[in-house]
Amino acid sequence: MKVSALCSAVWFSLRGVCSTNGEGGPPTFVPVKPGEIAALLRLEVALDLRQRAAWAGMLLYVVSAVYVCYLAVKGGLGLATWNALFWIILLFAAFNALTRSFQREDAGRQLYLYTLVDPRSVILARAIYNAASMVVLSLLSLLVYSLLLGTEVLENADLLQFVLAVVLGGIGFAAVLTLISAIAARAGNGIGLMAILGFPLVLPLLLTVMRASKLALDGVAWSITSTYFGGLVLLDVITITLAWILFPYLWRD
């Protein structure tokens, strides 16, 4: 009896993913709607272009955070500290950037979107857009960071691996924080709640990505680091899938 209850509960949660096609045929996978997602992505880009100040704000945030670090340590950082400091700056930049994701639109526009498109397209488009902007932001941070705090730690590094770690980490931050941002926006208590809810959830990702990038900085071979990159990809994929499953319940009131 317990088992059947569990199954039904899992079914409830998955009901959104699978749906029967009309005449009681076998369950089919609801297709991802590329057209809708592309349209939503264009919308995101258009909205962001209209608010260039927000991007400028984020860049300024990164630059000033790095500059404060530079003033505080005046170069001469060990490899481990260099790595840790970089990821801490990136973590807070991610929180800063992604809090806006669902805060910026009012209830009216959400209702309008709701009548037009599938919620799953919304979350996927947001996640993709946020991931892309996080990747850009992380690479820019890396640039500013290495300009100010010195590149001597990068000399022995496998640069390709390090950039891959930065990219996968940025995507992971975006994946986790997009759903959290939606929850915080719905709860109506923006920024403070976002930090409280998000911090414990990005920790697994943060620890893995810090370890991976540390190994990349040490110049460790692919055969060893590939486990970490596999783990990161796994974390990213599972997080996005969870967001994709759960978001529709958050969306409709």
Binding site: S13, V176, L179, I180, I183, R186, A187, L197, P200, L201, L203, P204, L207, T208, G231, L234, L235, I238, T239, L242, A243, L246, Y249, L250
Partner: peptide, 20 residues
Amino acid sequence: LAAIYNIFAFMLLVLFLFVV
């Protein structure tokens, strides 16, 4: 909201405890 956060967090927690 709480249910969504709970499920999301628990799944990531399972990853953290058993995969990482």
